[in-house]
Design a protein around this nucleic acid. Structure first.
Lengths: 127, 127
DNA sequence: ACATTATATGAGCATATGTTCATATAATAC
DNA sequence: GTATTATATGAACATATGCTCATATAATGT
């Protein structure tokens, strides 16, 4: 049994065997950068809460103000506002003022696309 | 000022005004059922953690065993196994035994599609 | 100025989540 | 049987998350 140097990041397991190195290389090439990975998780995590998903789904039909979203999604005004702030910060929705109302809409077709794909997937799996 | 009945779910805000009722109706029609909403959040939340996303991205290039994933994703064996269990439970990956190794692969093209879209979106936004 | 309506936000709290550590299980070789 | 390698999993713990409550801000009307 040889001594592991402190700098070695490799493990003594099947992953280090010759026959498996090409699989690891291929995977490492496919794996996006940490920066991209982070951005993707930010997008998906924005879509991974029921309140936010309801808000976004509601906005698929057209723009709505906060209290309309409150009605449709059946959550408190505060909860809607908090989640809208998160969605704004992550660039998934945009807001405009209309007098006292703050009217929200989906930011772009990317968002629309992701929601559609998600719903399609959910509808097809486990039927 | 009239008294709110306890049974009333409606609020005295702009959402209840005639001019806005059709927007609410449209949104309510677009909004998927709670069951679908739940399934969609389950899918997106599975994709919203960096370890899991690295695992899934790695598997885009082909199947890998646990210790290979451990190498590529640079996380502990325990962390990989725990996350693989979650991904298995949610139907995003499938496993097969190969001697001592447990070899994992993406479950289907839906998963592949979602990851690709997510990465595309992340790559295009904020450049 | 004050009142009303709509929205935003900070603090606090309860729950969810992801990791580590220790240990259990499985497969193979001796 | 024991030893080794690979994987799985329960418990504990720290952090993250989403809500409520109270309050602040903004826009309009009087």
């Amino acid at each position: 049994m040889d001594i592991k140097t402190e700098s070695s990041t490799h493990l003594e397991c099947c992953a280090t065997q010759e026959t498996n190195l090409c699989a690891i290389d291929a995977a490492e090439c496919t794996l996006p950068s940490d920066e991209i990975i982070y951005k993707v998780t930010e997008i998906f995590s924005a879509l991974s809460d029921s309140t936010r998903l309801k808000i976004l789904s509601s906005l698929m039909a057209g723009e709505l103000c906060v209290c309309e979203l409150q009605e449709v999604c059946e959550v408190s005004q505060s909860a809607v506002s908090h989640q809208l702030r998160l969605l704004r910060d992550r660039g998934l929705v945009r807001a405009r003022r209309d007098g006292q109302r703050a009217v929200y809409r989906l930011a772009d077709d990317h968002v629309r696309h992701l929601i559609v794909i998600g719903i399609e997937h959910a509808s097809e799996v486990e039927e």
